[in-house]
């Protein structure tokens, strides 16, 4: 009996957006008289940080401080349509809609500011810190808040914009499968080291190292959160998680987290990652989707590492200790 080490790798791509398209999202942006901008939509934040990244995208496109952008989402009476948060689509789809709406609002904002400053709107720039000023002449300026006030009370204009993103539906040819299924692709490559106890069948994951390419990152800390969380999910999928331990039989289904085993903090190795940025022309500021792909390369990398450690060929997940011990028995029997 021994503890055997192995290394495995896996490389994947992942499509951004609902398969075959046809999944629109709208956004509205308007300035209030408080100096804030409101992004109104009906997209859902699952905890991944959608409200944060859409506020960043809106602030960037408007040219105003991040803190002054509020995201008002999740009410179908007030928020325009969103197809939903899935398919790695929302940063891309809602992000594009927000950019479009924000650019329209910014145009009005600069026109209002130009009238107040008695200059040409094309010559104005925003500093991202709450001021609009003449390019090359920072002293010729007006605050965003004062411009918003002037729009409402003096010029009688709304500083607002409308945005929508729709990739039209591309049907899949039933015979050949010909279609235009996605907007762009993100990429990942993961390397995993494991140590397998040949007596107990227990697997310790020693390291997870990944490279990702996801277009422009909107928020690197949240991207890292997805990558680490996905590595953990991938470990669980690869090693222990299932609602049908004797699939396809339906018995022995777990009813809680005692029967449904997920890795604990003590089982998690340090997750190292590097993120490459190849901006896509289709995405908001070049962003692709990262939400779904983050377990996809860790899972096969873990199984490849186990096979590498043991000199066996396991092809099913989860690779429980029982699966490992049976594979070792089979290997011993065929060697004998």
């Amino acid at each position: 009996m021994a503890k055997l080490r192995g290394t495995g790798m896996a490389a994947v791509n992942y499509p951004t957006g609902m398969h075959l398209g046809g999944d629109p999202t709208q956004a509205l942006v308007h300035a209030t008289t408080t100096g804030n901008f409101v992004v109104t939509l009906s997209s859902v934040d699952l905890g991944q940080g959608l409200k944060t990244v859409l506020a960043q995208i809106a602030a960037e496109a408007l040219g105003v401080p991040f803190e002054t952008v509020l995201v008002d989402t999740g009410d179908t009476d007030t928020g325009p349509h969103c197809t939903g948060t899935f398919a790695s689509r929302t940063t891309h789809r809602a992000g594009n809609a927000v950019v479009m709406a924000a650019r329209e609002a910014r145009k009005v904002l600069l026109e209002v500011a130009a009238e107040e400053l008695e200059v040409n709107a094309d010559d104005l720039v925003t500093d991202g810190e709450g001021s609009i000023h003449l390019a090359g002449a920072p002293e010729m300026k007006i605050s965003v808040t004062d411009a918003a006030l002037a729009a409402h009370f003096v010029q009688g204009k709304t500083v607002s914009g409308r945005g929508v993103y729709l990739k039209p539906m591309s049907p899949m040819d039933p015979e050949t499968g010909e279609c235009d299924p996605d907007s762009t692709h993100a990429h990942a490559c993961t390397v995993v080291e494991v140590e397998v106890d040949t007596e107990t069948g227990a697997v310790a994951v020693l390291s997870i190292k990944s490279a990702y390419e996801i277009g422009q990152q909107v928020n690197p800390a949240l991207v890292r959160g997805q990558i680490v969380g996905g590595a953990w999910m991938g470990m669980g999928h690869a090693l222990s998680e299932t609602t049908a331990p004797y699939y396809p039989a339906i018995d022995h289904a777990p009813r809680d987290f005692l029967g449904y085993v997920m890795p604990g903090a003590a089982e998690m190795p340090e997750v190292e990652c590097v993120v490459l940025e190849h901006p896509t022309e289709t995405g908001p500021f070049g962003a692709k989707g990262i939400g779904e792909m983050v377990a996809n390369s860790p899972i096969p990398a873990v199984v490849n590492a186990i096979n590498n450690a043991l000199g066996v060929r396991i092809t099913e997940i989860p690779v429980t200790p029982e699966v490992i011990l049976r594979a070792l028995d089979e290997k011993a029997a065929s060697a004998a």
Partner: peptide, 25 residues
């Protein structure tokens, strides 16, 4: 691609190279 759309935004090669570097391969 097999679904008859020409690939764009490909970066798998660079991603594999970056992972190799990270892992000391």
């Amino acid at each position: 691609k097999a679904h008859r759309k020409a690939a764009d935004d490909a970066a798998l090669v660079e991603t594999i190279q970056a992972a190799a570097q990270l892992a000391g391969q």
